[in-house]
Design a protein around this nucleic acid. Structure first.
Lengths: 339, 339
DNA sequence: TGTTAGCACTCTTCACTTTCGAGTGCTAAT
DNA sequence: ATTAGCACTCGAAAGTGAAGAGTGCTAACA
């Protein structure tokens, strides 16, 4: 169990290290206003804190640096609610103050605001489409041999894919097929589309000509082959501003995984509702073992669907970041409540 | 004027430096098969080459390094046609070997292949839409108050924007408007759309109810506010692999400009037809003064429309890169010829 | 006359010291 | 229980010296 004095000292060390990225010595701590005892006393306490694993030395005669256990304790027990500045609040709100409320625009703007505000890298995972349903399916012919298939969801999301029409398929059959599909599939959740197409509809389609079936197969592969995970990343270059990433090789490892949408989506997807913090080795991805990842979920029409995250050094401004994420995810959920 | 021997030596120096990124000394040059004279002779020639500004020393007793003037001479006069490996050719071709020929997919794949093949950063600027025309305009209602407007071009490109419908506009008016617009605007080049909407159509629309006009204004802002420059970038992390970018601050400057689509679009747009090489300070953008940028244009339906580029250190494999870009841009133009 | 061997000179790199200062741990005094 | 004092440790920065790569110049050579 930690004494009050130890708590205080731990707090000062972490707060200070978050700002300076430099090891903190006993003398520096004693200079703080809230500290009333001498460096020698502090040294004793620090020796205890180190023994318990909350802080570390970088070398035998250096100042102390928070350990991952220290950060963990800090975010679990020492995190003070942070009062966001008017400016912070305004910038977050500004995301939602435009007329054209399209999901992608909002997310894109959010990502930028977040990374600008924090100087960390922000990542937003688009909505998982549990509740999203098909609104309309359409084919626009471009020429005799090419067409573009367009899929609109009830959230206003648009997927499209163009394709060449095999010669064996008649344009009229394609039209007919789209009509049938629209009749049958409007309102069906997107996640079920693939399944529904696969099983139910093949039966129905057998009542019609063979040609339709091949058209159908073609369309299916055109539209539903891969349902992309929408990962939005902003402020990647911010990583380079952090002193802990002066080493190019570290940056490279980190940037490489950020290029892998699939991986990032999995990392973000696997979090529980609310705010969650992963510090250093708590992250499953190796390249992130020097980072902290703070995730917040937002909801769309009541259901948890997406994740907002900030990736930075372990030495993050946890308090402020948590407040920012809270504010943003709430406003986001609120804005998308009606959908 | 350079003697044949000087040309040979310059060629060896640049070829060697491109591979090793290390200053080349007279001894190393003399070891090359194609070199038949002694280090001392080479030193004399190198002194001349340096005097003429084609090569430089990094310090008074170092080996020589190509200067920008040297690179310029190299690409202008010493560039040998490079025979691409089977593998290179196959990878480039593989981009076009899929069924679903959508422009964005092709470009995205190209960007990836190029950066993988070269270990540089590849940038592709999407087609300037001179020839692209409107194929279809559409509105899909999501709810009473929201809708998504979808614009399809004859190239299969899809733009969409969702918006909230102001209460003073009736849904039926919106429908009517879209019908009118489709009647009048299909086949009109995209670049003219804004203009056409602005001038010609307002007249026509005055024949109809006032409500349509406000709907029209709304729709216009929803769809045509900003025509985005499509800039595709791949292999940004490759920059980190180059020894000249070990310095984090350089990388940061470079990455920052790459985040600015507008800027990148301008840089790429301002090139002439065919292949063009900008070396170091020839680049207008400051952050690129340590890089070379090689651009190639591709055409869509005969007209020059887009740019493929590779960004790397000045010490690029010019010969191979030029061949790769040539091949890709040709295949691209060929593929899109029919559109 | 063009080429080359030889040599003195320059400059970087690397390993090794030295110095300096920040910070610690321990002990003894308060 | 707290603190002053002090010896000790270690890293960072600056300095030193030897090794090595490379040059420019000169004189000899074909």
């Amino acid at each position: 169990m930690l004494s009050n004095r130890q708590l205080l000292i731990l707090q000062v060390i972490i707060d200070e290290f978050i700002q300076t990225a430099q090891p903190i010595g006993s003398r520096a701590i004693s200079k703080k206003d809230e500290i009333t005892f001498s460096p020698a006393t502090i040294r004793n306490e620090m020796a205890d804190l180190e023994e318990m694993g909350y802080i570390e030395k970088t070398h035998s005669s250096s100042g102390r640096v928070p350990s991952e256990k220290g950060y963990r304790f800090y975010v679990d027990h020492l995190l003070l609610p942070f009062h966001l500045s008017k400016n912070d609040q305004q910038l977050i709100s500004s995301v939602f103050e435009q007329d054209l409320v399209e999901f992608e625009q909002v997310v894109q703007k959010s990502v930028n605001v977040l990374s600008d505000l924090t100087n960390y890298t922000s990542i937003i995972l688009g909505p998982q489409v549990y509740e999203t349903t098909l609104k309309q399916l359409q084919i626009v012919h471009l020429s005799v041999t090419t067409a573009v298939a367009i899929l609109v969801t009830n959230t206003g999301h648009v997927e499209h894919r163009s394709f060449t029409i095999p010669t064996e398929i008649k344009a009229s059959d394609l039209e007919k097929l789209v009509n049938i599909l629209n009749e049958r599939l409007v309102g069906v959740p997107i996640v079920e589309l693939h399944h529904r197409l696969q099983h139910e509809l093949t039966l129905i389609l057998n009542h019609y000509v063979d040609d339709i079936e091949s058209a159908f197969h073609y369309l299916k592969s055109a539209l539903f082959d891969q349902q992309p995970n929408q990962v939005y990343i902003g402020g990647i270059t911010n990583m380079l501003l952090q002193p802990e990433f002066n080493d190019v090789s570290k940056v490279h490892a980190l940037y490489s995984i950020m290029e892998k949408e699939e991986l990032m989506a999995n990392v973000l997807r696997s979090t529980h509702e609310g705010i969650h913090i992963s510090i250093g080795h708590e992250n499953k991805v190796n390249a992130m073992r020097d980072c902290s990842l703070i995730t917040a979920t937002y909801s769309l029409a009541g259901k948890q669907v997406g994740t907002i995250a900030l990736l930075g050094p372990k030495r993050m401004e946890y308090s402020r970041v948590v407040s920012l994420l809270n504010l943003l995810s709430n406003q986001m959920s609120h804005t998308f409540h009606d959908w």
